[in-house]
Design a protein around this nucleic acid. Structure first.
Lengths: 348, 348
DNA sequence: CTGAAAGCGCTTACAG
DNA sequence: CTGAAAGCGCTTACAG
């Protein structure tokens, strides 16, 4: 009789309530055959003792674990922290427990982390920022083998896996149209080149908008960036502003890769006696905390992170376990331009 | 013969290499009795196939899991993100896998999260920001029952558990002494009251320093704060700066609760025509990214997060499993003042 | 409606 | 040095 000596939390509870441990398990798993009265007693005891049935036992047996593996590359950027915090809360509200891992963008580590999550039998995987191209195929087959639901958030490259992302074309469009309405015709891009995340799509979208509005890309767009830049931070904004000041004729509007670069540039311009927005308008990206409090407050694109994460979790839960590559779920979230005082009418 | 049909990763590997799965297990666990040649072959295969032995099986059997549970309250503040990122990296360098959970400061959730980590058989627990007083006793007995190593980082209240924390008295002292050397004699505290984390200790330390230097607390220290303030952010700094401007005689130095409040205050003062540091010097706390790039760059206290986390992990690893409450390990890390241009000599 | 077996993937004694 | 049993805490068939 090897079944009797078990001493796990559920067995202990069973003994205490005078039930068999199988009954406890059935209650835990919502089986319909338990007497309602018994079920009520068991749940009550679980609550009051704070009993946690071993996730190890459950997982090993093949049951749901309630855990979601969250993989992301770094936590350094403020916008990433905000994504993580929101995702964790949304997952918790959906009854899941988020386990987070950082990969530092290291493909080897990325694969290891995903393998570990799968070995832990997570109920799903959220890949923030996508996965390295090198690993894509391996990871896709691992996931399909396990039938683990997955969702990518803002992948750097299109992926055959279910995806939720910000509509980056729309983001560029609302920025451009805001500035165009304010009569700006000569622009500078700060830090936007094909080497940064979503750099190419931004450039291409802007080129399209230039054509649409009869502007001349070569004459009216000044692209300033340093392809070797390691960090897209304040210091980079300073550096690019210095280069901006040498450009003639001077553009009247700046579109920055993100809020840090925008703020860094704005501070340097002001230091050099250029007034914002009277002489130059500036738009950032991400709508960070600091942006609303700088002088003048920065016009910026908000990513609607709450909506992105809600959609991602909805997608994850809805997956039947086999995400057939034939019809990968895909969801784009619309950004919103937060208009503040760093943008104004172009000088005549 | 119920042992044969196992199909876990290790069994699969065993079959492939013509070994028994017990041998694989022995290699994995570094048992000395395995032939070196066999051991080498096994490790090689593990590497090349990216095999992950089921952590569920291992954990259930009582072996080490390599997982460390990290519990923290929120991820909103930039300084917290920095702590988390550093901790995760340091843990990884020590061969661990960090599982992170947020509690939003909710005591009920805190207890649940810790119970879940223990049920997952983590090898250790890191509690960032300490634990709610309500739960302290429950959690301490849970940990001792399980003999799970634990370390608290910067707990809000002294704890009988092993602890690593910033020496906050020293932090206040180096700030005060820097300003005192610059001949400042009339001070304002912004956002520092007994309601904020480590508020009381800062006030008391400053009072001691005032006595030591023959200053008059009631006459020379102006404490500005709003006990109802929800967020210690830029907007709060703005608000407090407005109140600062009404004070007469005007203090020549401001000690802010953190960098956001310092920056918010500085920007508002400048807007009102008060020059920093000529008329007022300002010191922040946390040494955030933004602080080095604002104009003028902000003098601030750096928390030496790297050292804090290194010490914490060292403490965790060193624990014999039974942290006797008789001699709780305790480690204080010294802060460093980063002197920048927001502080200067007091006007004569 | 409830009891008991089988087995998830491991590791550690215990034999040989 | 290596084989096979026992058992970690569960859940799901299968009996009653």
């Amino acid at each position: 009789m090897r079944s009797s000596p078990s001493i796990g939390p559920t067995s202990a509870l069973a003994r205490q309530l005078g039930l068999s441990r199988w009954t406890i398990s059935r209650v835990l798993n919502g089986h319909p055959e338990v007497k309602p009265e018994t079920s009520r007693r068991v749940w009550e005891a679980i609550e009051s003792f704070g009993l946690v049935p071993s996730p190890l036992g459950r997982a090993l047996r093949g049951s749901r674990t309630g855990m979601i593996g969250v993989v992301f590359q770094s936590i350094g950027l403020p916008i990433i922290s905000k994504k993580i915090a929101t995702l964790q809360r949304v997952l918790r509200e959906a009854g899941f427990r988020a386990l987070q891992e950082l990969t530092d963008g290291n493909p080897h580590l990325e694969l290891k982390v995903i393998r570990h999550f799968l070995a832990l039998r997570v109920d799903g995987l959220v890949l923030v920022g996508g996965i390295g191209a090198r690993n894509a195929q391996t990871i896709i087959s691992l996931l399909q083998e396990r039938r683990t639901p997955v969702v990518m958030i803002d992948p750097l490259e299109p992926s055959p896996l279910p995806t939720v992302e910000l509509d980056r074309k729309a983001a560029i469009r609302i920025v451009f149209e805001h500035l165009h309405c304010l009569n700006h015709r000569r622009f500078a891009m700060l830090g936007i080149d094909s080497g940064v995340p979503w750099g190419s799509i931004r450039v291409e979208t802007l080129q399209g908008l230039f054509r649409e509005h009869g502007l001349d890309w070569d004459g009216d767009m000044c692209a300033l960036s340093n392809p070797g830049a390691k960090e897209l931070g304040f210091a980079y904004g300073n550096e690019l502003a210095d280069r901006f000041l040498l450009v003639a004729p001077r553009p009247t509007a700046i579109i920055a890769i993100n809020d840090q670069v925008a703020v860094g540039a704005m501070l340097r311009l002001q230091e050099k006696g250029v007034s914002v927005p009277q002489e130059v308008s500036i738009v950032g990206f991400d709508n960070l905390d600091v942006s609303a409090h700088i002088r003048p407050p920065l016009t910026s694109v908000d990513q609607h992170i709450e909506e992105i994460m809600q959609s991602a979790v909805a997608l994850l839960v809805r997956q039947p376990g086999d995400h057939s590559p034939a019809e990968p779920a895909f969801c784009q979230v619309h950004p919103v331009l937060i208009k503040r005082d760093s943008t104004g009418a172009a000088a005549a």
